[in-house]
Every structure is written in C-alpha cells, then in structure tokens.
Design a protein around this nucleic acid. Structure first.
Lengths: 178, 178
DNA sequence: GCCTGCATGTAAGGCGTTACATGATTCT
DNA sequence: AGAATCATGTAACGCCTTACATGCAGGC
C-alpha cells in the first residue's frame, strides 16, 4: 500500500488537513486512488500512530475545527526510503480489451460501433487532461526540477491515452478487410 | 465486475473446467485479474446459479473428477450484451509516478538510478511480451478476424509498455539540465 | 524423498468503494 | 428553497489476494 506514502508526500509539501488532502486526490488524475473519507482519515490516524505525522487542532469561528497534519522527521525518512525503493511496473485494468476479446464473432458494423465509442471517450479524456495541464491548477514547484517533473506526470497520463488512441486506430484499419 | 463475463467468454470458446480457466487467466497478460482459486470457483458457482452455464462431472481414473462447464443460451446472450455495452476507459495504477512526484528534491543521480531501474523493468516486460506473442501459445482463432483481434490484444500490452519507455526516456533527457 | 501437475475448494484478511451522519454557512 | 462548501468521521459491503487443505500420480 503506497496510499500512505502519497499522503506523506503531500504533507512533505505543506501542512494540510484531511479535507485538503482529499481535494488534491480528486484533482490529480494520476493518483490511483479516489481519496474518499474512509481512506484518508483512516490512513491519517494510522500514520499518526506510526509517528510519521503530528497533528494540531485549529479552532475557527463559523467553521468546524480543523486537524492540521504536519510531517515529522521520521515521516520524511520513511517517505524518502519509499521514493527510492524499487519501482513496480504499472498495472492496467482495461475491460474494453476483454470485450474485444469476445467480439470476434460479431459483424464489423457492431465492432466498429464499439470501437468508435471507445475512441471517442479516449479523445474526450485527452482533451480534458490537456486542458488541466494548461491551467496547471495544482503543482508543487519548490524548484524548477519539481515543476518539470509534475508537468511530466500530466504528460504521462496524456501519452498513455494517446497511445491507446493510436492502437485503436490501427486496430480499426486492420479490421476493415476482415 | 466483468470477471464473470471474461469467464463466460472462455466458455463461449470451448467447454472448460475451472482449473483450465485458471490457467488461461495466468497465461494471458491482458486479463486484469490473477485468476486465483477463490475468484474462479466462486464465480463459476455464481454464474451456474444464474443459469449462464451448466456443468457435467466427468470421472477420470488416476486423476480427480472434473467439473466441465459449458455456456448456455442465456449465458451467450448475457455475454453478447456485455460485449456490446459501452466501454469504460482503462484504469492504470502506476506507483512509480507517485514516487517520482516526491522525488523533486533529490539529486539527479538518485533520480536517475530510480528511472533507470524502471526503464529496465519495462524493457524486460516488452521483451517477454514480444516473446509470448511470437510463440502465440494461446489464442482462439475460429476465424481470421478473431485471430487478428487476439494478436492486437497482445500488441496493446506491448504498445502500452513501449510508450511508457518513450515517456521515461523523454523525462530523463529533460532532467539532465535541471 | 521432493517437487510438479491434476483438480477442487475454503478461510482470513486487506483494500477500496458507496453511503450514512452531523451541522453551520454561503451561494444560486 | 435547495445545493454546495467546510470539516470530520463511521458502517457496510464487495472485490481480490494469500494462504490453507486434500490427495493421487509421475518425474528427478
């Protein structure tokens, strides 16, 4: 589980409440978790117990009290070790290709309808991601290097969907005379 | 959950035992489930209850009895409907890019070590997948069209990892002067 | 003697999701 | 009047994984 380390990452950037972390999770496409309440608040309690973070309760008027978390030295070391640990290969769950796997006995018209829908969705996603990158809503840029890396994280997503579009185009062309 | 439909897909190809289905799951890289006992045998019971499949117990000497499943007409219709249903976008879980996200404050030597390891693993994967495609161990090819589609399924995986390699190469080059 | 293949299943637990719960304020 | 924002949390459930369990046959 590296959800824990992703949260530590955000807290290494700046102090935050669970609510704020949750917002980042939903805004950043490349995070593989949705960042729902259960995940965030449970994990925060857990890493507090492990002494990777500490919290301060801040009272506000007109709004409910906040629990502001900050990373400890122990947490920084944990994060650093994880960042440098051996990377895993990405895992993809693509149900479309499982649909395709059993579409071989259908007529081309039906298959093309399926393919075109998929391609359209992919195209929409690429447009959306490109928009998000342009706006550069959220990115830690404590240094030129970090800003560059975060830009590349967005490009990673875009490239991935773009290469899927290329593949599906090739697939479609190949099917024409089959 | 489309694990169910993936199993139905295999049974639309030919009659099989749970054990055999399990083998296909582990051999086919593009299936997003591992196909462990719990998944397969539980799902088989479930789709039997739904009357998508029927089973026959076949006794063998020297080996334990087999439960051979075959798809029903109801199951074929269910499969067909699923195949033609609106496709979802692929979901990717890439922990490497989360590691990268918090690597911005490290020196390039450290980052390059991480990147190079990732790139190496990706390269290994591409080689392995290419080998598997060459050998064409498993593929239903009831028609020219189906054989083409299944070849393209392998290419989908290969392309995906290849485009990740391209991205990571670009990333590395961009980091040199940062 | 030990591992692998054949063949079926169960148990336990982790991870992730949706939905529920509260309660004030501010925007439409 | 109703929805959204701020802010925290809990409950229930489903999916998926690892590990456990059995037992015979054949190869090294």
């Amino acid at each position: 589980m590296s959800l824990k380390h992703t949260i530590l990452g955000f807290l290494s950037w700046k102090n935050m409440t669970g609510y704020e972390i949750k917002k980042y999770f939903s805004q950043l496409e490349f995070i593989p978790w949705q960042g729902n309440n259960n995940q965030i608040y449970k994990t925060l309690l857990e890493i507090e117990k492990e002494e990777f973070v500490s919290k301060k309760t801040v009272l506000q008027d007109n709004y409910p009290p906040q629990k502001v978390y900050s990373i400890t030295l122990k947490g920084m070391i944990e994060l650093r070790n994880w960042v440098m640990s051996d990377p895993e290969l990405p895992m993809t769950k693509n149900t479309f290709i499982m649909q395709l796997a059993w579409a071989g006995s259908m007529d081309n018209e039906t298959i093309f309808r399926l393919i075109d829908k998929y391609q359209y969705e992919l195209q929409m996603k690429v447009s959306l991601l490109s928009e998000m990158l342009k706006r550069k809503t959220v990115l830690p840029d404590r240094s030129q290097k970090e800003a560059y890396i975060w830009e590349m994280l967005w490009h990673n997503r875009i490239n991935l969907f773009q290469s899927e579009i290329n593949w599906v185009t090739q697939l479609r062309n190949g099917l024409v005379n089959k």
